[in-house]
Design a protein around this nucleic acid. Sequence first.
DNA 1: GTATTCTGAGACACCCACGTCTCATCTGCA
DNA 2: TGCAGATGAGACGTGGGTGTCTCAGAATAC
Lengths: 203, 203
Amino acid sequence: MATDRDAVLEAAVGVLSRRPTAHLDEIARAAGISRATLHRLFPGRDALIHEIGLLSLQRFATALDTAAVEQGDAQAALRRLVDAAVPDAMLCAFLAGENQLYESNEVNDLWDVQIERLHALFLRGQREGTFRIELSAAWLSEAFFDLVAGIGWAIQDGRLAPRDAAFSLAELFLGGALRRPDAPVGAPPTHSTSDRKPETDTP
Amino acid sequence: MATDRDAVLEAAVGVLSRRPTAHLDEIARAAGISRATLHRLFPGRDALIHEIGLLSLQRFATALDTAAVEQGDAQAALRRLVDAAVPDAMLCAFLAGENQLYESNEVNDLWDVQIERLHALFLRGQREGTFRIELSAAWLSEAFFDLVAGIGWAIQDGRLAPRDAAFSLAELFLGGALRRPDAPVGAPPTHSTSDRKPETDTP
DNA sequence: GTATTCTGAGACACCCACGTCTCATCTGCA
DNA sequence: TGCAGATGAGACGTGGGTGTCTCAGAATAC
């Protein structure tokens, strides 16, 4: 039953992330249920938005957990985080788009905790000499989350193949856009860090 | 008078970029005018949103023009674009947040043109050997625009100092997050291309 | 000084999305 | 087959944002 609710929430994200003013009819249709059932699952629109925010933050928190961002060297931790976060990139896109929307302390507190964990990761990496110190850890956190959100949008709109997502994100964020003739960033040309096996790419 | 309209539009962006469902009362108050005057300037909510999109795209197009992205080597062109686009980053943030909103062909066509120019810049840079070819030009375009939007949000919420914005954007996007002991990205330690002078870093 | 224009404040009606309800249908289980 | 639970379709009333209007006051020009 909880899975059912989550499936509806994810479908709702797919609609609301791009059209925040979408009607409940549209959301229900996207979830494959009727408006009546949507109202049975969630009391109202506010409750729906609230639970989307909660789900998204919980997923991101789980990604931080499974990536064990507090352990190991910072670069490897970030690569693990990329792999863990990309599947839920669309939820992050929703958060990035309207995180100001929440008056709920529950959501805001959870948000602060996760951002703080991300911030700590970059601070640690800077102290270790892994990350650049010319860029503030706050900006690195912000930019990383923005790129995750961008991944979510791009995948949703079919502009980016899901199997390329993790590689594209990790390489661009860590290594930047400039070509370096001497040495690659750290990831070999084989897509070891990103996804399982590349076959088709039309979502 | 056109300046008046633009000022209202920019104020509206400040509200709508974070709260897409904001009432017209709120937008009018943010612009320092009454709801009646807002209705005199723009027939309705749809027209307001439409003109915001138009203004944003025109500003971005102007940034592409002043940066002369079609000329010179690609890296320098991109750095010029950063400097030109950052002042209107919040408008880009609005576009990134709800570019699906527009059914207007006028807006969509303008959007496609600008994205195509950005795409062409990265393609050219890849052919010149400036930009990495492991990352698709489409993804580089997308990510660049996402970061510009992130800059806009971060500045608006006070998480990033405006004078650090261009430097942070250019350095992260071009050089990535990883520290390179041997050589800097290409911009000498003096921030010649982006901003005037870095001093503090606590936003 | 008047006259003109523009603006803000408020009132008003309209409309549509929302929330709730009922009822028929379908499914799962004994 | 019969029962219980869940779902979809539709109707209905309501509320709040929106669009329009009027009128008083301020600003500017003459």
